[in-house]
Amino acid sequence: MHDSQIPHEAVVISRTQESRSIFSIGLQFTDEELNKQYRFQPGQFNMLYVFGIGEVPISIVSDPQGSDEFIHTIRTVGRVTQILEQLQPGDRLGIRGPFGRGWPLQTLQHRDILVVTGGLGCAPSVSIINYIMLRREQFGRLAIVQGVKHSEDLIWHDHYQQWMQQPDTQVLLAADVATHGWPWHIGLVTELLPQVELDISQAATMLCGPEMMMHATAQMLLESKAKADQIWLSMERNMQCAVGLCGHCQFGPDFVCRDGPVFNYADVQHRLSRRGL
């Protein structure tokens, strides 16, 4: 058995600049055998290694049964992502993964689904939305609620436009601050929740974004008779080993890398809004 603490070489197949600070790279392992074996679930993540710099955990955004490449959408924030941003097709890097628990796909079959996202480039949400879009007949109604700080932060305009056209699909967008001509809501993402056309008490909800936003959203959904154990959320913490050994990602008694990053809200609701945890 290969030690999951050691990376495999991968090569950049494609590259897309999504916005000024967000880009996507499509990757393949250089070992053909590994490409064949590689399986992941939406919501899981890989550790991306840049030679001589280090590793960073990034969610996998592409479809698990998609093309030969797996795609990461990355925002440039630190040393490792700054180098990742410069990678071009043909460049090499290291990959370990996939790690963690993804979205509860089995539980979602034939149900109405609400996806609420705060912030930009939230890859875990996009992975589940894309998953549903490619298997539309296996799911009920879908409501996508997306908030960004500034209207100019919104990426994937064409995705949202496309999703808006789909049957049984509602897309609601909000920006805290908007430039002239922003056709959607100006304000917090939670302010859009009353407009969601779903039976919240029966729907399954996926949340991704800042903890306070997920906490506030979950609180509002509970008031609308949502069941706590029918809400899932994707958590972020410092992750270095990705296999539950290094201790950095501990969130209460959970290791986010191994027990998450997707958690059931009922299991974490008392910890979610706690400062400094």
């Binding site: 030679f51 001589g52 710099i53 280090g54 590793e55 270095q240 080993c241 050994l245 290094c246 201790g247 950095h248």
Partner: peptide, 10 residues
């Protein structure tokens, strides 16, 4: 106590 960090040394 088991916490440990990882870093690259080029």
């Amino acid at each position: 106590c088991f916490c440990h960090s990882q870093h690259d040394v080029p």
